[in-house]
């Protein structure tokens, strides 16, 4: 019974998880107990028979090169995600401003045109009025380029 408990302590010791104050007790028991000494040796044989593989250098190279690749892609993404959209926003904004400017200008021309139109209309009315107020005239043109205008009074 005691040995079963001690074998647990041996395993804890082998794993570096045995409390320091228990070590003396364990060694004391090992000195006395042949069975537990054998168990300790067998446990050591088990633990030391574990063969660990070294980390392959090729894999290391692969990991770091793919990291660099990924980082470059991320930077490209940064360009694609930040620079290009902000450029297109700027372009859209400029187009909007230009559109607004042309719209205002167009309205200005429109009112200007309306004013000119009004003026022309007014002038034509005046001319018509003046024309009607004049007495009827007769215009004779001859082959020798003499033009005779006679007012009919």
């Amino acid at each position: 019974m005691n040995c079963i408990k001690n074998r647990e302590l041996i395993q804890l010791y082998a794993d570096g998880e045995l409390e320091k104050n228990m070590e003396f007790y364990l060694f004391d028991h090992l000195a006395k107990c042949e069975e537990c000494r054998l168990f300790f040796r067998a446990l050591n044989a088990v633990i030391s028979s574990v063969i660990k593989k070294e980390f392959p250098a090729i894999l290391e190279k692969k990991i770091f090169s793919s990291l660099i690749e990924k980082e470059e892609k991320r930077e490209n993404n940064f360009f694609m995600k930040i620079i290009i959209p902000s450029l297109s926003y700027a372009a859209a904004f400029l187009i909007l401003i230009a559109g607004l400017y042309f719209y205002i200008k167009m309205n200005e021309y429109k009112s200007e045109m309306a004013a000119i139109n009004q003026q022309i209309k007014y002038q034509s009315q005046t001319i018509e009025l003046l024309y009607n107020s004049l007495s009827p005239t007769v215009i004779h043109a001859r082959y020798d380029h003499e033009i005779i205008i006679k007012a009919k009074i």
Partner: peptide
């Protein structure tokens, strides 16, 4: 679980140690 697994391994190799 670890102790039981080790115990089985120790049983297997005990005659060699």
């Amino acid at each position: 679980r670890l102790f039981r697994a080790r115990q089985r391994l120790i049983d297997k190799i005990s005659k060699l140690v």
